[in-house]
Design a protein around this nucleic acid. Structure first.
Lengths: 103, 103
DNA sequence: TTACTTTATGTCAAATCTGACATAAAGTAA
DNA sequence: TTACTTTATGTCAGATTTGACATAAAGTAA
């Protein structure tokens, strides 16, 4: 959001803030959430790239369709661990993983 | 180990293999272990660099000295999550984190 | 519309993780 | 040696994560 728009909204009585600020997240908590998002999006990107359903992807990862959906959604019940493990499982290299992490 | 040494040992009846092979780890399981090791070593490096004890470091990370010791040792009870969260907590950037991941 | 496929969401038991504690082990200095 | 500091290890209760299931919701094609 640009500064002008921010001024406009504030003039109308809206308090303009970031999601992180709104939720009262610290910088590093924010970084974790962003990281999880980046990883989950990559996982989805890879599945879509392979043109397979969550069901088939789940088989490949030895888990359930529901869990795949949650991973791709960056659900709270999904750890960085799970995302990283599964990315490595489908053949993402550490170098590629690093790319995602720094994204 | 060089090929000559490997031949020597095999000639003596030793089966030469890697730790990962010995334990029957798949490539991606191996990658996870290496990744955990890289992250834990970085955490230790940072603490040592700051010249503080595990006790003080634990305070900073809001955990116990025992947990710090386990993190630095890459103990099985420590997840990638915990390592990553704590690295971010002490101020490691995503870019720096990526460096560690690709190491 | 129906029938079918795919994806999302809620729940839960079992597995895993984590902080905390005790205590052992190792290191340091006198 | 003793006294002290630091680090390592074992245990465990409480918290979190995960695979699995059911089912809802959304998308697709006829």
């Amino acid at each position: 959001m640009n500064k002008e728009r921010k001024r406009e909204l504030e003039a109308k009585g809206f308090e303009v803030t970031t999601v992180a600020d709104f939720l009262g997240l610290s910088k590093h908590e924010e970084a974790i959430i962003e990281l999880r998002l980046a990883l989950s999006q990559e996982l989805k990107k890879r599945r879509i790239g392979a043109r397979i359903s969550q069901e088939r992807f789940a088989k490949r990862l030895e888990t359930s369709q529901a869990r795949v959906a949650k991973m791709e959604a960056g659900d709270k019940s999904v750890s960085l661990d799970l995302l990283i493990r599964n990315l490595l499982k489908i053949g993402v290299s550490r170098k590629e993983l690093a790319e995602i992490v720094s994204s």
